[in-house]
Every structure is written in C-alpha cells, then in structure tokens.
C-alpha cells in the first residue's frame, strides 16, 4: 500500500519512528512481537541519570501512538525482510508490503546463566539488574528468604567485554545502571552496604560522571576495581565472592547477602534471520552494521530502503534510541518521497 513503512519493533525507537513518519504523512505500521508496545522499558522502574520513572517516558509515547491512530500489530514477529525494503514476512508466512522498512528490533538481555561461575539460577540471591528493577517496581528488595540485605554487591560487565561468552562489546549503559541501582539500594536501606565491582567506569552521558561521584561521596557506595571470579554459598546462606582488588594487586574475598549481575545487551536473536533474508550485514558482535559510523548510523547502505533505529545496531540508552527513531524515520521518508540524501 502506498506510503506504508513497516517498523519492526514497538519499543521506544520504533514508536518514535512511527510518530515521526505519521507526522510526515506516511502510513507507519508497527510490528511488535510481544503482546504490548514499549519493549524492555516496560520492565524498568526508574531511569538514569534523573530517576525518572520509566512510565513517564513510556506513557506519553503510548498515548501519542494511540492518539495519532498509528496502526499497531501485536504478537506479530517478523521473520524476514525483503532486501529491497519493499516488505516483510511475518511468522506464519504472511507478507506485508511496504515502501521501506525501519528495523527497530532492539536487543536481548544477556542470559546470566552462561556465566556459570556466578551461579545465577543456582544460588537464590544471585540476581540480575533486570530482576532488581522488577524488585524496585514491586517495592520489595529482599533476599529469597525475605530478609533486608545488609550488604549488596553489584558486578559490572556480565555478558559484556567477555569473549568467553562471545560478547566482546561494551554494553555501555550497565555502568551507569550499576551506579543508579547502588544509590537506590542505599536510599531504600541506609544501613545496607553496597559494593560495585567494575573494570572501567564508563560514564559516557551527560550527568553520569556527576552521579557516579555522588554515589561515592554522598551515598558511600564503594567501588572496587576487579571482576568477581567466582561465587559460592556460605554456611549461613550468604554468598562468598572472590575478586582481585586490582588497585592493590591482591586477591580479596568478601561476603554479601545479594549479588546483582549487571547483564549486558546482546544482539536480538531475530537479527540473524532478518540479516539473512534482507541481505543485511551484521557486525562482529552480531548487531546490525550500519552504513558508516558518522553520517550513515541509521542507514544500511547508500540507496537502500532499510533503516535502523535504536539498539538494533549497538547498545544505546533511551534518549539515543529515541533520536535514532526520528532520524531513521526521516531517512525512510526521503527514500520513498525523494529529496536530498544527507
């Protein structure tokens, strides 16, 4: 159908792309695999660096998508994309014709069980950052047997920068998430000690470094440079962790009531089938490779009709994903309607 743009994924990037295209007079169709729009943000409680409730970002977007009368198809997993961008194939074989495609299919969370040495899924009080967000949302941050933790450890880079689990990239947002979550625990339980185990602190966004420093000075979060190598249970139901304090150069062992694994962003499982069907290239880590790193961030090639938005190409934060939704929408619009190619 004329002016139809298929948008794969109804997270923040996909919704923002749809809103922009609608405003430009196009007919965006959001194809969302899950039964609701919003993607991963649905599961998050508050957002760095401002402690903004995720709902405050999500609800206006959902409202706008509804208000604009944008066509949304839920439970619609996309299995293939035409190399010329003229349509997609849904699970079940249905084909949807379009004039261009925006790939906003997002990321998968790293499966923490793959880092067996941390015992996720084996030891009750080893949880992921996503689990902790659920606890924050339910306002119940307690150990498995219902105790208020006296000490929480937060481990950075779980499923990031780790060739042992084929995740060589940096997931970028985990560092600041770790700082945010550490501070939230301290706000919730001022008596609870919080230790962050990091390799590098990558405070890339505006205000991030400032809250990192605030976490140290005001919130008394202790940041120890070293990756935890092994977690085991203790007799009294705590966790023993081994690490090296690399700023000292000696091994260290410490106990905690709860260990939070900051799980990284992995390429979505659907990337491979989309890449094969659409003749799209994947980067080393398995995220989609955009045309270039400067002026072609959201394009797949020079004259193609397939565009990227959000974490389909690399780990990004919410603001960056939203911006890419707008950028990809404009480029999709230009590819259909003609005009200067910038």
């Amino acid at each position: 159908m004329e002016n139809t743009i298929a948008i794969i994924g109804g997270g923040v990037a996909g919704m923002q792309a749809a809103l922009t295209l609608k405003e430009l007079g196009m007919r965006p169709v959001i194809l969302e695999r899950e039964e609701r729009l919003g993607g991963k943000l649905n599961t998050w409680d508050r957002l760095f660096p401002t402690w903004t409730p995720a709902r405050e970002v999500l609800d206006p977007l959902l409202e706008a998508v509804r208000g604009a009368g944008i066509e949304v198809r839920l439970g619609a997993a996309v299995e293939g994309v035409s190399p010329d961008g003229r349509g997609v194939t849904l699970a079940g074989g249905e084909r949807l014709a379009a004039e261009a495609v925006v790939v906003a299919s997002g990321f998968d969370l790293f499966d923490a069980r793959l880092k067996e040495e941390y015992g996720y899924g084996i030891y009750d009080n080893v949880i992921t950052s996503a689990d902790l967000e659920t606890m924050f949302r339910e306002k119940r941050v307690l150990t498995a047997d219902g105790r208020v933790p006296r000490r929480v450890a937060i481990l950075h880079c779980v499923g990031s920068r780790d060739e042992k689990v084929k995740q060589n990239h940096c997931s970028r947002v985990c560092c600041i998430t770790g700082v945010k979550q550490a501070m939230e625990i301290r706000e919730l339980y001022p008596e609870c000690e919080v230790f962050n185990f990091y390799m590098d602190m990558r405070m890339f966004g505006p205000g991030y470094e400032e809250i990192y420093r605030q976490s140290q000075e005001e919130y008394k979060v202790v940041h120890i440079r070293g990756r935890i190598s092994e977690v085991s249970p203790t007799l009294d139901g705590r966790l023993q962790m081994k690490t090296e304090d690399t700023l000292i150069g000696r091994p260290m062992k410490m106990e905690a009531d709860m260990l939070v694994l900051l799980v990284g962003m992995c390429p979505a499982r659907s990337n491979r089938s989309l890449a094969v069907s659409g003749n799209l290239s994947l980067g080393d880590s398995g995220f989609f490779a955009a045309a270039d790193a400067f002026r072609g961030n959201t394009r797949c090639g020079e004259n193609g009709r397939i565009f990227f938005a959000g974490t389909a190409t690399a780990p990004k934060n919410v603001g960056e994903s939203l911006n890419e939704g707008t950028a990809a929408a404009w480029q999709a619009y230009r590819s259909v309607k003609g005009g200067a190619s910038w």
Binding site: E116, G119, I122, S232, P233
Partner: peptide, 27 residues
C-alpha cells in the same frame, strides 16, 4: 556437569543416599 558445577562425584553421592556439601572453596 561442566567445570563450575561438576556432577560426576555428586551424582554418585546422591545415588547412594548421601548429601553433597556445597562449601565456599568447593571449586
């Protein structure tokens, strides 16, 4: 059972009625 949670001996202990101790320096 792999390297972190090997089951080769634990499986024997359990099959023969015993209980496996998981202590901090097990590995």
């Amino acid at each position: 059972g792999g390297s972190e949670f090997p089951y080769v001996l634990a499986g024997m202990i359990e099959a023969w009625g015993g209980e496996v101790v998981d202590y901090p320096e097990r590995r």
